[in-house]
Computed example of a mutant assay.
Amino acid sequence: MLAGALLPWVLLRPNRLAPGEYLRLPPALAGTGVLLAVLPLLTARFLPRLTWLPASLAVVVGFWWLGSQTQAALVNQPPFARASAASGVWLFLLGAGIGVYGAGLLARSRAGRWLAWAWLPPVAALFVSGHLNAWSVLVEGRNEGPRWVQELGQHLRLVGGGLGLALLIGVPLAVWAAGRERVAAVVLGAANGIQTLPSLALLGLLIAPLSALADTFPALRSLGVSGIGVAPALTALTLYALLPILRNGVVALRGVPFGTVDAARGMGMTAAQLFWRVRLPLALPVWLSGVRQAAVLLVGVTAVAALIGAGGLGTYIFKGLQSAAADLILLGAVPAALLALLLDAALRGLERVLGRRLGRVE
């Protein structure tokens, strides 16, 4: 945070692609930033339960300054001028984020941990109120408009489709392999082998066979199967998601306590009842951890699939790389990162809920 307050805060460019001029915070604001950088350290030393307050304040102030400084930079500038966040913004917000995380660790109660999120409503209000509308990333987002929403929807469809197909294939395979050592070795070995292939290489390898398949069977081409586009993307995503689902499924099913299974057999349960009422519920929290890993993995791999015409948020990442437009890169990368974090948090919460319920049942 200290370095961020002293480094350039805004990059003002005459247009999206042209080089620009770095602008620093005014001296009064820079001095305030230095003070905000010191306050969390002092609070953590003398009042650890209140560390959330200066850390959350620093996050809110960082976004406020980003909005006010980008607005000030664009005064008397042409409509196509861009005011981007410079290195000072990112370092300041990174330091403030570390302070918020540390405040959550120092909290000794659940209420204290929730207070570490006190920055979220004010920051959301800044976005909703339009205070940050001069920030170049949001300017590009408004310009893209419906196209960005379309690509986000495509990204979600690809992730959901790949994960769903992997579950349809991986769940029966994991159940079959859990009680058969040789089958497990073959299945997990094949999934491990696929995982070692770089995502771009796997997408490239799928182009030729899928093109040949579509040429041989024209009906498949009418269904959308071709060497580029959604078909190879979904195939690659499904293959990548198989390993965590298979591995965690096999480990979870094998980890069900033998005594519990034996007691269920003694009660006269059939094999189907034993699986659905005993083995699967007990294995589900660990198995769901594999599903969570697969979902987060697919969010990143889907971005690469934009290179073969599958669409998604990766379209903006590679478009920005080709034109050296950092704002377009952020327009694709930041939502993809947030999507991965949301999926991880949601599925992790589901794991905890299942674990608590099973713990109470036991």
Rank of each mutant, 00 (worst) to 15 (best):
L2H: 12
R16A: 15
L17K: 06
Y22D: 07
L23E: 09
R49W: 07
T51M: 13
L53N: 08
V59Q: 05
W64T: 14
W65P: 15
Q69W: 04
Q71G: 10
A73G: 07
P78Q: 10
G88C: 03
L91Q: 05
F92K: 08
F92Q: 12
G95K: 02
G95V: 01
R108L: 08
A111L: 14
R113K: 13
P122L: 06
V123L: 08
A125Q: 00
L126N: 02
W135D: 14
N143M: 13
V149P: 00
L156C: 12
R157D: 03
L158V: 08
V159R: 09
V159K: 12
L165N: 05
V183S: 07
V183K: 05
L188I: 11
Q195G: 13
L197Y: 06
L197I: 15
L197N: 10
S199V: 12
A201Y: 00
L206F: 07
L213H: 08
D215L: 09
L223Q: 13
P244Q: 04
I245C: 15
L246E: 11
V250P: 08
V251L: 12
A252S: 13
G255R: 09
F258A: 11
M267K: 01
M267G: 01
F275E: 01
R277H: 15
L280E: 06
P281I: 03
L282R: 09
L284Q: 13
G290Q: 10
R292H: 05
R292M: 11
A294V: 03
L297A: 08
L298F: 01
G300V: 11
A303V: 08
G311H: 11
G314K: 04
T315N: 03
Y316L: 08
Y316W: 10
F318I: 02
G320W: 10
V334D: 00
L343Y: 08
D344M: 05
R357C: 08
L358E: 04
